[in-house]
Design a protein around this nucleic acid. Structure first.
Lengths: 212, 212
DNA sequence: TTAAAAATGACGGAAAACCACTAATTTTTA
DNA sequence: TAAAAATTAGTGGTTTTCCGTCATTTTTAA
């Protein structure tokens, strides 16, 4: 009772490489190889694999949208993103689109097999080399934060309330202040965060890590 | 030419524990022990250490504000947060406030010494046990994303423009649509994201990972 | 191939935000 | 202690958002 695997990747070289890497793995059976999103979709109708190795740079689809569609129509298929793109934004995007794992194409045989077996068990697998990078990306906010404008205590307080969808009037009532005062602090916030309206204010506050 | 270290922590037990752990480390000289933010600030005026072990739960200050003040006044002091709080939000907050490292109080001697030496070299040190947790927290957005309302193409498009501080009129001009149409899509966005105003809309869009 | 969903457009009115000033008092910092 | 920053409050006016309701056409999915 092996793992039924399918691959979608438009590079013949990658296809061949994967075939070879998986040839000697008794537990994994390469069931199908597709070269495009279209091929994949019609192939899945006939037979859905346990695990799908998904290239995120296909000619006819971008990766995360394709992943979303597959997750919706074939929730039982465990997807494993396989790509050369190693920026954390892409990893996040694919994981959020429903991929259980993320591998780089320079993966070695053992890691590949381990990844397939891991996602087959519905567990997450992210290439070890990517993890450290992801961590740094997450803490990167700190660099932006260094450039973040310094807000006064009142400004911070009011910013939190704005983020909680309070109107100026409601903030005034909450803090027992004049609405005019709130408006002034708000103007100061716009100035410091270089925002034109509430949307920009909140967006930049989030970017600078000023919320919560 | 050793590393001059100071500690601020209000628990005598922790103070004692750190003393003991560091007693046999020839390279690190424990120069001062403070029990409160006030004590620390006056102590720093007399003599600033190379590395400061900073408890983030002091009676008279909350950690990130204290760290920010120290970073501003004594930028040469390398701060190392030491706490029992292991939620990623706290780690992020302290790192963003200028701490070079983050340790848990159950730290062993070797890790402690290594952390002090690492931040002394102005490099980042985060407790290894914390790293995995941080990673999961970062990818956690994916779980939220599963609950995220599904937006139509137009709604996504308009949401991006709202986040770019466009007014409805400007969005209408950009997309060659009637302002009324934009208002309707916007209404739909409010409904789907359960927001009352622009602030809430952007906040929730960010939370759901719907932006960029 | 029909429903359903999405995209488009409109009207009127109330509320809130946004803009540009001024200015007194308190707190913080140099 | 004097200067700077923060907090408070005001006036008046314009723009934008927010709310409810309705309706037509186009696209998508069962």
């Amino acid at each position: 009772m092996g793992i039924r695997l399918a691959i979608v990747d438009d590079h013949p070289l990658v296809q061949a490489g994967l075939r070879q890497l998986l040839a000697s793995s008794g537990n994994i059976m390469l069931e199908a190889v597709y070269a495009s999103g279209e091929e994949l979709m019609s192939g899945l109708e006939r037979s859905a694999p346990d695990v799908l190795l998904l290239d995120i740079q296909l000619p006819d689809h971008n990766g995360d949208e394709l992943a979303r569609i597959i997750r919706q129509r074939y929730p039982q298929v465990r997807m494993l993103a396989l790509t050369n793109v190693d920026t954390s934004a892409y990893v996040k995007k694919m994981i959020q689109a429903g991929c259980l794992g993320y591998l780089l194409k320079n993966v070695d045989r053992d890691t590949l097999v381990q990844a397939i077996e891991t996602v087959y068990r519905e567990e997450q697998f992210i290439a070890p080399t990517l993890k450290e990078e992801l961590l740094q990306d997450m803490l990167e906010g700190k660099r932006k934060a260094k450039l973040a404008p310094s807000l006064t205590r009142r400004e911070k307080e009011i910013l939190q309330l704005i983020a909680k969808e309070y109107t100026s009037q409601e903030i005034a009532d909450t803090l027992f202040l004049s609405p005019n005062t709130i408006e002034n602090h708000r103007k100061q916030l716009f100035l410091k965060l270089d925002a034109r309206n509430m949307a920009g204010l909140i967006k930049k506050a989030v970017d600078f890590g000023l919320l919560e």
